[in-house]
Amino acid sequence: MRWIHWSDGDAEHTARWHTESGMPVPRQVVMADDRMNASTAHRLACEGTALLWQGDYHQARQLLQAMGRRVDRKAPSAAPSPTAAFHLQRRASGHRARVLGRLLVPLGADYTLALRRAPDIRAACEEAYGPPRPTPSVVSLRELLGVLGAHQWRTKGVDVPALDARIHPHYGVFSPVRGEYVDLAARAPLPRPASHGGPAFDLGTGTGVLSAVLARRGVRRVVATDNNPRAVACARANMSRLGLTGQVEITAGDALFPPGRAALVVCNPPWLPAKPSSALEQGVYDPKGTMLDAFLTGLAAHLLPGGEGWLIMSDLAEHLGLRAPGELGSAFAAAGLRVAARLDTLPRHARASDPEDPLHAARAAEVTSLWRLTAAGRPERSPAPPPAAPDRSPAPGS
């Protein structure tokens, strides 16, 4: 447990330091309230001084937005290549997070936010942080707003047309808002052993959305794994809500594959082989492609005869220069795998068509694929169809 210390006049104070992004404990803390303007707050935060807010809650939110606008004025200049643009954007995002993360608020031991006009945040904090602790804490307002946003998503849920239902993501669990990868799993033909009662594995299940899709498609038993306790709790809650606990077993642990073999093994690893800057980014960044490598090298040994592994990945890493063209195919061959077929779709999120996005060129060229992989030494039961053309249908509601 780490502690933050500050002075208020002649009084000395100590509280537990809570961060989900790995922010270090601020060494210098000053009191701030409604009298502090955005220019002063931005300057102090850039110098490394944390601001412990004592004023109005809504004024604090407005101050955070104003600080963000000042950070964004110093946007990185045009980069000479997509790879350079990616690294510049990552550095800019990290700087933004550090500066804005220095506006702090105090939480009571019961997660009460003792600021004027503050909402009741206790349920949201308990969902994200667990049961209340016996001591007060100090948190970044920016992180706290993320907790409140996650609470709203968890309450409302994310509509998944492939399920004709909603998935409810928990804080710290990758949300299936990019539905194109789910749609690929919903329309890929099931391998014969899976459609005839063979089990399926869902590796790194997250919210459990792909397990739910497989179960709704008639796969009788799905074993889903994840090493994130929040994801395990989230997936179990979603399976219970969807009435699928009899078909889907959620298991926790560090092992990527569960014991045994399956007719179908599905994996949607983080798409970018880069280091996450916090635990909350682990659904996006896979350092050195560790999870991808573990899936490929272990797949053949975990497939039943006639079974398939479904790798669902975007090629954004190739367009950003983070993975060489052809590297994925070489990795398949090295793992003793062959491509039976591939289904492609184009991204439907807003940034793919936003020319102001610093990574626009790469995002505009991005294709998300479901690779149907088989063990190279095993004969196919039926001829593999050619790769499908990318799905160019508009997003629902567009």
Rank of each mutant, 00 (worst) to 15 (best):
D8H: 10
A50L: 08
D56C: 06
G9V: 04
G22Q: 09
G9T: 04
L64I: 02
L44Y: 14
P26V: 02
G48I: 02
S7P: 09
S93Y: 06
W53R: 01
G55E: 00
H18W: 15
W17D: 07
V71M: 01
L51D: 01
Q54G: 02
R73Q: 08
R16Q: 11
W17N: 05
H87K: 12
P82C: 08
A15F: 10
L44S: 04
P80D: 10
D56L: 00
T40L: 14
V29N: 02
D56P: 08
H18T: 15
Q54D: 06
P24G: 07
R61P: 04
A11E: 13
E47Y: 07
R70L: 14
H58G: 11
Q89S: 13
A79C: 09
H18Y: 12
L51P: 01
S81F: 09
E20N: 12
V71Q: 02
W53L: 01
L51K: 03
R90S: 12
Y57C: 08
Q54N: 04
V25Y: 11
Q89E: 13
F86V: 05
L52F: 03
Q65M: 09
S21A: 13
T83S: 15
L63C: 02
R61C: 14
Q62A: 15
C46A: 03
M23Y: 14
R90H: 09
R69D: 12
A38C: 04
A41N: 03
L44F: 14
R90V: 10
R70S: 09
R91D: 10
A41E: 02
T14G: 12
R70C: 06
A66I: 03
R69V: 07
A84G: 04
P24R: 13
R91I: 03
L63D: 02
T49P: 03
L44G: 00
